[in-house]
Design a protein around this nucleic acid. Sequence first.
RNA 1: GCCCGGGUGGCCGAGCGGCUAGGCGGCGGGCUGCAGACCCGCUCUACAGGGGUUCAAAUCCCCUCCCGGGCUCCA
Length: 469
Amino acid sequence: MLRIYNTMTRRIEEFKPLKGNRVYMYVCGPTVYDYSHIGHARTYIAYDVIARYLRERGYSVFYLMNITDVDDKIIRRAGERGVNPIELAREYERYFMEDMDALGIQSVNLYARASEYIDEIVDLIKVLIDKGFAYETETGVYFDTSRFKDYGKLSHKRPEELLVHRIEPDPTKKNPADFALWKKRDKDEIGWDSPWGYGRPGWHIEDTAIILTHFGPQIDIHGGAIELTFPHHEAEIAQAEAATGKKPFVRYWCHTGLLTVGGEKMSKSLGNYILIRDIVKKHDPEALRLMFLFSHYRSPIDFKWSSLESSNSSLNSLYNMVERLREVEADEELSEEEKKLEDYYENFKKNFYSYLDDDLDTPRAVAELFKLASTINKILDSQERLYALLKFKLLSEIERISKIFGILEKKPTIEAGLLESVLEILIDVRGKLRIKGEFELADQIRDRLREIGIILEDIGYQTRWKLRR
RNA sequence: GCCCGGGUGGCCGAGCGGCUAGGCGGCGGGCUGCAGACCCGCUCUACAGGGGUUCAAAUCCCCUCCCGGGCUCCA
């Protein structure tokens, strides 16, 4: 039985989708006005693993993510650069996709751009006004939080707490807690026509419109980082439930812990802003994934380069084990030791999946994986061969795990550039043999290379190579 | 100020009433022409501090200290 923590109830609950084994899953995507940083990586890797696990568990998951391409920050940045905001958004969206690819995140079924849902957003706002949950002022259309009794239920805030605000509220609002559905703007800014005049959507409405369009009034999982709980997700509940009348809008609210660098939230002014693209240049993305798996998705993580390096070593040791297992010769006899390993393996499976079932407890599952690795290494140390069926079982299990975690997915391949370097080393060593007069060995190298299609030609003590046609 | 999370061994990080988590690093040993990988052992009875509850507390309760997040920009 799969159980998952629900921010709404603050409890771990049994996971039961609305419609059989179909899972509607939505995660708040990025605002594309800058390169993505490791905080994004943390969040999206966490949901990638959740989606992968649900699928491995037999659920048919539709994973939907929005791309916020209409937003104040985008407009400001575009203004600074003198470019069109949508063009700027497309550019950073492309970088975002590249980063997701680099991190091995392919689990999202559909990315939805806010700008392509303006009609749906306008329709949704109309419904909210008609039902008396929203009102128009000279600056925009606002959601009337006093009309929605449940406002605050997700973030567990009392109504009086909602009156506290850091930013000066728009004076036309009835209540400081009310939030914008439509912002009226001048024609010189990017925007769209609406029944309330030219302008653009508020921050929270796009997600609700996209969800209602693709999934309808109720979904199974809605995710995002913990910082989005209030006001963003609170507002989404208000918009959706007020508009459709169906409760709950979301069956399981998931929130991932925040990532800090040097104990503080990343910011450019602090100089602790680490981009995904800078990490993957120097480090194995799988090491980053493993680093995140070492802690629970809801726990905060303080990023340290030393942790990433430590995870890289851990990853290497797992790869070594897998390689040894792949290469060991199979036989048909089951030894006493192998019997024990088989029992251990059955036990491992039980533990491993029960930990993942328990609110995706990857730290404990990963711990089990390392114990398994150590057990496999021991047996590979103690005997030359491995019982064929056992070898097969272990390898297929590891493959399944690698699919869930998105690690150990690289097959050892040599790309062309590397192959050339290897050839150069070989030619260099052969040259040294010739200088020493060890022609027999040098000729052997030349002959064996010729057999596989590589021709060596000596010109004095220089050697060049070409491929046989 | 109010509301949430946290503070665990050299480092990272689980556990959340009794049952050796795990990883990384270091040291010693085994294996090895050398290196690497791997195995064994040690570092490792650690849980911010102070009270309390309990047969039993890192885990529950109270107080204090420190850190992070939210309180309409945020993954």
